[in-house]
Design a protein around this nucleic acid. Sequence first.
DNA 1: GCCGGAATTATTCAAGCGTATAATATCAAC
DNA 2: GTTGATATTATACGCTTGAATAATTCCGGC
Lengths: 209, 209
Amino acid sequence: MSRRTFHRVGEVERRRDLIAATLDVIAEQGLRAATVRQISARAGVTGGLIRHYFTSKDQMVQAAYRELMQGMLRTVDDAVQACSSGRDRMRAFIEANLHDTVTNARTITLWAAFIGNVKLDPDFAAIHREYYLAFLDQLESVLAQFLDEAGQGLDKPSLREKTIAVNGMIDGLWLEQSVAGELFRETEAAEIAYRSVEKLLGLGEGMLA
Amino acid sequence: MSRRTFHRVGEVERRRDLIAATLDVIAEQGLRAATVRQISARAGVTGGLIRHYFTSKDQMVQAAYRELMQGMLRTVDDAVQACSSGRDRMRAFIEANLHDTVTNARTITLWAAFIGNVKLDPDFAAIHREYYLAFLDQLESVLAQFLDEAGQGLDKPSLREKTIAVNGMIDGLWLEQSVAGELFRETEAAEIAYRSVEKLLGLGEGMLA
DNA sequence: GCCGGAATTATTCAAGCGTATAATATCAAC
DNA sequence: GTTGATATTATACGCTTGAATAATTCCGGC
């Protein structure tokens, strides 16, 4: 008749654990399975605790969405910042986007689960917009440096257009690779991306690949 | 104390109505809201009827997924078949993919809702794979004709690679346009796609745009 | 050591879920 | 018209859901 023993953890860590558990459950069993009970079991706590840290289950799920996007953004940013030349950064950007830390069943499943709510829920829409613009800005700065160093600097509107095109292409390849990865060779997507970006930017072959 | 009156309709029509109602509910309120009661209410029948036409609710949802994919495939195919020259077909393909009959909140929401299950459920995986390959084949044949007529015919592996790259780019733009369409000018995505495909195929400017 | 506040558990509740089954209204055939 | 088959409705059942509340356990400050 005794209660479970438990130990207290700092608020920051507990929130992080709950968000991690939320992502785990969604990734492994889908949004439908992301119930208060499943998530709390995964986090090793009881359901009531969720409402102690989040005003509702939905708010916790939104926090998990933010966490996923932030992680993807940071992964790519770290890879880019580790390089200095425009060419290396461009290569790092592509590689990071198509590397299997980002391109895997877990990430695409999570991403799709959330994207499905973007048009239905204003809260999700706001989060999506925020990170979409961040992704775009990230790529634009890499692209600007790369083109400058190649002596192909562009005016702002042209740069923005190229950014959208390249971003779209890489997103598309990311999607293809993630969802239908078994149809690609190991590094095929990255190779295609290198050559495609060269072409999109009007550069000669071999500038990236 | 009288029952609702009703009238019988053919099996084909009833199934179609139920599938349409399923898509409507998912598009408007998400997969979570796609319950037997919601869907049957939308279709103007009672819940029990669903189990009369489908062995389970999940099977009906899968049928709805197939219906969505088939519709997208057919929309593009109709547009392509209405043209004859390779250039016109290529243009029609791009335009159809980025036209707002395919690029809209409804379609992207439905698509994302289903994609989120592809990695979790073998039945969804099978449906996805079937239509992904059909989309690729569709594009490959358009691309082959276009390149042949431009005197730039490719061997089979190169053609497949180009197909994947172009498909990825168009998918990415489709995604961007669908999810963040308010950030684009009306025809911006299609224009970007024209120029990007030219570049991806190594053709001169103006071949498509 | 023990006290008090707060983190955590335990329990409860009404609502909604998918499915099974029984009752009944419809419609074609004659 | 009646009848027979069956499409459709109605109802019930056992479970699960998110949330609210009450009861406890932990642990830093004293």
